[in-house]
Amino acid sequence: MAASPLVRWFINVYRLGLKEMIALARDPVLLGLMIFSFTFSIYSVAHGVRTEVRNAAIAVVDGDGSQLSRRIVEALQPPYFLKPQLIDRSAVDVGLDRGLFTFVLDLPPGLQSDLSAGREPTIGLAVDATAMTQAGVGTTYISNIVDREITAFLEQSSTVSLVPVEVVIRAYFNPNLDSTWFMSVMQVVENVTILSIILVGAAVIRERERGTIEHLLVMPITASEIAVAKIWANGLIILIAVFLSLHYVVQMLLGVPILGSIPLFLGSAAIYLFATTSMGVLLATVANSMPQFAMMAIPCFVVMNLLSGATTPLESMPQFFQVAMKALPSTHFVAASQAVLYRGAGIDIIWPQMMLMAGQGSIFLALALHRFRAMLARQS
């Protein structure tokens, strides 16, 4: 009994997908890129890219020379800061211009006596803001350290007998404020975007450049079977790589705890891969060669990664970008990934993002199939 057209369609998609997996296994460049992206790339970014202050060079102009000023200097300790260097006020500009210091704390003469008398002296802080992130975070660190030491000193000297408000800070989800926890997981998420577009797009371009697309055209298969096979095969390979990377690199090697459900994250990643691989097929049908495809793909995944909310919060962007980025699946995938992996959210929290990714993926797939059929018609 002959199989129905629908069953035959699934069989053809399955067999063509196996062909895609074999082709990828025989491509050392793409295979090496995928292995590198989900191993060394994640490890190096997690340890090399720091959002918190670490070993920052700081100098102090101690114009007071009092017990309080020495106490403040001693509080500027590693691992946040290198050992403070005591310099003269005339050396401040020279040190900042030459990049010798990132921060220079200026403690004025009479600091301790002014505070004890109830006056409000001015403490200066010069910052080299060329390293913008470190400058902003480090300024907050130093301000908190100075405030803490002044308050403790005044309490000991009985100048302040009672502090009416005490601020207690509790950091949830990342209690040590370790950027490794954030950077490693977000690097996995960003690599999913990059590789899903590159792999499936390269598969389409490879068929055209090597002439194997003509072999497919003479077979009793349709354009949808060829395109969907490339989507599921490359998507499955990346999904497996994501799981292995989360388990062996993020959890075991880097020691980052995953609070949420990994199966739920993989489920949302599968939907996202459906959208991005469809986008990769769409871009590959527009490009005529691999260099053209690369020139089109790079702006796409760079914008998707930088403006998705993985690097900076979406709420801090201009309103136009907030609206525009919600039309792309990367924004919803980042939100779902952070909710699941950082905060342990369930499907009741992230189902809107999953539905939006599925809807956007369907649009990309429809456009990709339309373009793919047109491309095959030109080839024939």
Rank of each mutant, 00 (worst) to 15 (best):
residue 122 T to Y: 02
residue 288 N to D: 12
residue 174 N to Q: 00
residue 106 D to G: 01
residue 360 Q to S: 09
residue 337 S to G: 11
residue 90 S to I: 08
residue 29 V to S: 12
residue 94 V to A: 15
residue 113 S to Q: 15
residue 72 I to S: 03
residue 281 V to G: 04
residue 106 D to I: 09
residue 80 Y to K: 12
residue 138 G to E: 02
residue 95 G to W: 01
residue 207 E to D: 09
residue 53 V to K: 10
residue 302 V to K: 03
residue 139 T to D: 00
residue 348 D to M: 00
residue 90 S to F: 13
residue 167 V to T: 14
residue 177 L to W: 03
residue 136 G to Y: 03
residue 152 A to E: 14
residue 62 D to Y: 04
residue 373 R to S: 13
residue 107 L to C: 13
residue 292 Q to T: 10
residue 57 A to V: 02
residue 265 F to P: 05
residue 258 I to E: 05
residue 298 I to G: 01
residue 333 F to C: 14
residue 230 K to L: 12
residue 300 C to Y: 11
residue 377 A to M: 04
residue 29 V to D: 11
residue 147 D to E: 13
residue 63 G to M: 07
residue 119 R to W: 08
residue 160 V to I: 15
residue 266 L to Q: 02
residue 361 G to R: 12
residue 9 W to N: 11
residue 234 N to H: 14
residue 337 S to E: 02
residue 202 A to V: 12
residue 61 V to G: 02
residue 78 P to Q: 11
residue 88 D to Y: 08
residue 114 D to Q: 15
residue 154 L to D: 02
residue 135 A to L: 05
residue 255 G to S: 10
residue 126 A to L: 07
residue 194 I to L: 13
residue 368 A to V: 07
residue 233 A to M: 08
residue 103 F to W: 09
residue 21 M to T: 12
residue 271 I to T: 12
residue 156 Q to W: 00
residue 174 N to L: 01
residue 314 L to S: 11
residue 212 T to W: 13
residue 222 T to H: 05
residue 24 L to C: 04
residue 73 V to G: 07
residue 168 V to F: 09
residue 308 S to C: 14
residue 289 S to G: 13
residue 267 G to A: 12
residue 174 N to D: 05
residue 325 M to A: 10
residue 151 T to N: 13
residue 87 I to K: 03
residue 156 Q to D: 12
residue 7 V to Y: 02
residue 39 T to Y: 05
residue 265 F to S: 04
residue 276 T to C: 00
residue 154 L to R: 11
residue 218 V to M: 09
residue 66 S to G: 11
residue 190 E to W: 02
residue 306 L to S: 14
residue 101 F to L: 12
residue 127 V to P: 07
residue 240 I to F: 14
residue 54 R to N: 09
residue 12 N to M: 07
residue 65 G to L: 04
residue 185 V to E: 05
residue 84 P to V: 03
residue 106 D to F: 02
residue 182 F to M: 01
residue 359 G to P: 06
residue 202 A to Q: 13
residue 283 L to T: 14
residue 175 P to G: 05
